[in-house]
Design a protein around this nucleic acid. Structure first.
Lengths: 226, 226
DNA sequence: CCGAATTTGTTGAAATTCTGTAAGAAATTA
DNA sequence: TAATTTCTTACAGAATTTCAACAAATTCGG
């Protein structure tokens, strides 16, 4: 997630930047209003966090200009001005939320989550698992590799889901029997070999980079081979 | 603009209701969580304002349930619980904003403006859900596909409504049994297959573009096939 | 290195489960 | 009571899952 922070106080910038980067966000910083406007005009972000009191253009004007410039994604204003009228001015300048300093970092994070939630595709929090160029969508139950749709049956889908959730780990047949088939593994059956074969035909056969590997005597593993 | 207020304190309700009506908003009130949920399920609003401490279901659970039920428009939580952790809980339950009582009415109004601003482009005074050339009007309980009126029974209507609110997601029979029939799914029945058959005859049979698809072993999905 | 023993891969067919459909019984409503 | 809606039963056809037999690959002891 790409976030633009517009703020001139070095301490606040560091706090926010560090915290966001720990959450795997990509953070860019502008130290004044003009620079913020230029960055926002040139790049696309998921969110802007801006101070109000800034050198050059102040946060309120910046907000208005950004909206006029057709920038629709969320803007969160962050400021020491805490009277109700300040808040109203802030929100009416086009901001989506307004947080008064000093604030607790975890509240900022929660508000960021709330603001970005709906834009993560109007299709809510999409449940997508990935490895290499293979993606599986748990909602639509669809699997795509290298952009190509792959049709899986219910069992094949659960099997792949188990592998992708535990990618890189060797999984024994006993474990697969228990977790995917919900049976106690008796050596009398070879369903698992059969299904690994099904899955490989659909997922690995037509591709150079193989993802499903056998560890003889131990089990199977889904990983990107080095 | 239609707004649903869920709050049991009569004084607060009156304050909000009166204030909003002065702004030409149409306000409906629920005095407990369950009633709020039912109103929200049946009608379409621009915004929900809900207290957290409520008789029956509390505001946080209500929020989660509403999101699960496919309700996407903004929810603003309004409560006396003002610690940072309370706010975080509120926002993470799916709410878009969180305002601590006592608050100034003009701040509430500003936050409402901020929340509804982005949806103003698509002002919906009517409760209409859509997919492709299929529309269902929740008020008049009418369904139209490609301009042609389709008569559905009550069960068929709720079933279709559930699908259209969760379009693109594969929905299992267990989930349909719980959410549409409100029963625990026992394999002894096949009502669901029967009703899917009813629905298909009315909605898909006479059209080239099929909307209801079967994912054997997983469930059914309403989507525009690519 | 060779061959037996073990493990895994592959295939087609059998068994099972799942789904679609019709017809009619039960419940509900008018 | 009749009409409508909802649910149950029954069954055929389709798709999936499992079985079983054999082929191929790997391990291991000599």
């Amino acid at each position: 997630m790409k976030i633009l922070v517009i703020e001139d106080e070095v301490k606040t910038v560091q706090l926010i930047k560090q915290g966001l980067e720990e959450q795997q966000c990509e953070v860019e910083v502008a130290y004044d209003g003009l620079m913020g406007f230029q960055l926002a005009s040139r790049n696309h972000y998921q969110l802007i966090i801006s101070d109000i009191i800034l050198p050059g253009i102040n946060g309120l004007e910046l907000c208005k200009k950004l909206r006029e410039a057709g920038i629709h994604y969320p803007i969160l204003l962050l400021t020491a001005l805490g009277t109700t009228d300040d808040k109203i001015l802030g929100l009416d300048s086009g901001a989506d939320d307004y947080l008064v300093k000093p604030f607790e970092f975890k509240e900022l994070m929660a508000r960021i989550r709330a603001l970005t939630r709906r834009n993560l595709g109007s299709i809510q929090t999409s449940n997508i698992l990935k490895i290499a160029d293979l993606e599986m969508d748990l909602d639509s139950k669809s699997v795509v590799r290298a952009g190509k749709e792959i049709a899986l049956t219910a069992k094949e889908f659960s099997l792949l889901e188990y592998f992708i959730r535990h990618q890189g780990r060797v999984i024994s047949k006993v474990e697969l029997a228990e977790k995917v088939w919900d049976i106690t593994f008796d050596t009398g059956t070879n369903v698992i070999e059969v299904y690994m074969n099904f899955l490989r035909k659909k997922i690995d056969k037509d591709f150079d980079l193989k993802l499903l590997h056998t560890q003889i005597g131990m089990g199977y593993v889904l990983k990107i081979n080095t």
